[in-house]
Design a protein around this nucleic acid. Structure first.
Length: 270
DNA sequence: AACTCATGCGAAT
DNA sequence: TTCGCCTGAGTTT
């Protein structure tokens, strides 16, 4: 599930349910139990998304940190009763709404779930590149880093210190839309091409936040009218496909930055 | 029941 | 460059 859009959507949705109330914090699975005890019953002031990280500002002054990694998931339940956790639940947040409904948010499988002093958040933010989903964030640092590098663009945009929030799907799809070969070296880019890349990434991520899933194709090109949902297999042009959604050419796959990068040799010539 | 794969990332080699 | 870690869904034996 998790690229930057997932994290920002979670922050939005969960904030509505949790912020400004006392929160029960526990760890059914046990691995977050010591930390959970320290904030159990505390008020939550804010959930801040940044790239693929979530920061929880607790009234106690400590800062929760969650990173979903590849497998992490949240399960949200709102109802009259408190349900038993399903599977391995590292952190459980519970509260009650004005209408006396029970809110339960269960986190399973995260790479990081910790409770830290505030400076930990500061040092993590310091090593993240600009986040296209943040209001007013600018691409300058991303552009400078890319143009100063010999590494390929497909390597660079998955690097969270270059841009924060792009993962394997948006990497493939953003490069596809702009017709950029994933191995093109950073040094060979002009500024306006990278400004276009920033805008493309930002637009795709925003759409991901509002859709709650990754859809990068335009409905016109796929020939699916509004009203009908776009099936998963047709939601991307190149990612995880055998054939390009536009031209039918065989999609190539090469490993870049530990992950398979999908691209269309016709649309993204060297 | 076993095996494979996944929208991630840092540490070890 | 490879390995390990976190978990669950889907597929194959």
């Amino acid at each position: 599930m998790p690229e930057g859009h997932t994290i920002h959507k979670i922050a939005k949705d969960h904030s509505k349910l949790l912020v400004g109330r006392p929160i029960g914090v526990s760890s059914p699975q046990g691995r977050f139990a010591e930390s959970a005890m320290r904030i159990d019953g505390a008020f939550l002031n804010r959930i801040e998304p940044r790239g693929k990280h979530l920061f929880y500002e607790w009234d106690s002054g400590e800062v929760g940190h969650v990173h979903l990694g590849l497998f992490g998931k949240f399960r949200v339940q709102v109802g009259p009763t408190l349900n038993d956790p399903i599977g391995e639940v590292r952190m459980r947040l519970t509260t009650e709404t004005e209408t006396a409904e029970i809110v339960t948010i269960d986190l399973s499988g995260p790479t990081i779930c910790s409770l830290d002093a505030p400076d930990v958040r500061i040092s993590i933010l310091a090593r993240l590149g600009p986040d296209p989903l943040r209001r007013n964030s600018k691409p300058d640092r991303m552009i400078d880093k890319i143009r100063a590098s010999d590494r390929g663009i497909g390597d660079l945009i998955m690097d969270q210190s270059v841009v924060a929030g792009v993962g394997n799907v948006y990497r493939a799809e953003a490069l596809f839309v702009l017709g950029i070969h994933p191995l093109k070296p950073g040094r060979e880019f002009e500024v306006d091409e990278l400004e276009a890349l920033w805008e493309t990434i930002r637009t795709m991520l925003r759409r991901g936040v509002s859709d709650g899933r990754i859809v990068t194709v335009s409905r016109d090109e796929v020939g699916i009218g509004r009203g009908r949902p776009i099936p998963r297999e047709e939601a991307t042009y190149a990612y995880k496909r055998d054939h390009c959604l536009k031209c039918g050419d065989e999609i190539r796959r090469i490993e870049i930055a530990n992950r398979i990068c999908y691209f269309c040799p016709t649309h993204q010539a060297r």
